[in-house]
Simulated scan of single mutants.
Amino acid sequence: MNPIEHIAQQFAAQNYKLTSQREAIVQVLLDHEQDHLSVEEVYMIVKSSYPHLGLATVYRTLELLCDLHIVEKMNFGDGVARYDLRGGVHEHMHHHLICNVCGKLEEIKEDWLLELEHRLEREYGFTVTDHRLDFKGSYNTCKSSGCKREKESEAVS
């Protein structure tokens, strides 16, 4: 089953329709899965196919996708809400490495916390239903040689 069909089933299970406009928004998220797009970025991409689609519709659709647990709304410390598709294969969200110097965002798809979840259930009787972990720091290449973003910010100063 392709991702759109799977998402359409999730919509139907909650008595919603995956309209053509909603499908276009989902397709943008699928096409840009590694980018963690903001509402405005999704809007700018989708409006080329749907010029009459409003920003409010994109916002409402993304919020509905969050409510249906199809996407996760996240903030990586830059004050911008970004949207990340939840993987259908994984039980939990993936994790992120966020560079404080260049702003690079890298995903870790492996679930490193599974053993911790089992321990929490054994020792505390607490069942984890989801988790998200973001690591903030800097890459050695950014610290040692200075990265492109760091050089650009110095040029502006």
Rank of each mutant, 00 (worst) to 15 (best):
M74Y: 01
G54V: 07
K109C: 14
E72K: 11
E106K: 07
L105K: 11
V71T: 06
S49I: 07
I98G: 10
L116R: 10
E117C: 10
R60E: 00
L65P: 01
L55T: 06
C102P: 05
E106L: 07
G87D: 12
C66R: 14
E106S: 09
K73V: 04
H96K: 13
L85C: 06
L116F: 13
L113Q: 12
L65D: 00
R86A: 01
H94R: 14
E115A: 14
L105A: 11
V42L: 02
H69I: 03
L105R: 13
Y50F: 07
K47F: 00
L55N: 08
V71G: 04
C99Y: 10
H118P: 04
E117K: 13
F76Q: 09
L64F: 02
H118I: 06
E41T: 05
G88E: 08
H69V: 03
L53A: 04
I70G: 02
C102A: 08
Y43H: 00
R86P: 02
L53G: 02
L53P: 08
Y59M: 03
K109M: 15
C66G: 09
L68M: 01
R86H: 03
G103V: 09
K109Q: 15
G54H: 13
V46H: 01
H69E: 05
E63G: 08
H96S: 11
Y50H: 06
V101K: 01
V46N: 04
E110Y: 14
G103Y: 05
L97F: 13
I108H: 15
R86N: 04
E115Y: 12
D67H: 06
L85H: 01
R86S: 01
L97A: 05
H96W: 11
V71K: 04
H92F: 15
V101R: 06
L97E: 09
K109T: 15
I70C: 02
R60D: 02
L62G: 00
D84K: 09
H94F: 13
P51D: 04
A56S: 08
V80C: 13
G103K: 07
K104L: 07
D67R: 11
V89K: 14
K73G: 03
L55F: 07
H95Q: 14
A56K: 02
L114Q: 15
A56D: 02
L105D: 08
V89A: 13
E106D: 09
K104C: 05
V71D: 00
E115I: 09
H92W: 12
L68I: 02
Y83L: 02
G103Q: 07
T57H: 13
L62F: 02
E107D: 15
K47R: 13
L97Q: 12
H90V: 12
E40N: 08
V42E: 00
C66E: 07
D111A: 15
K73N: 10
R60K: 15
S48L: 14
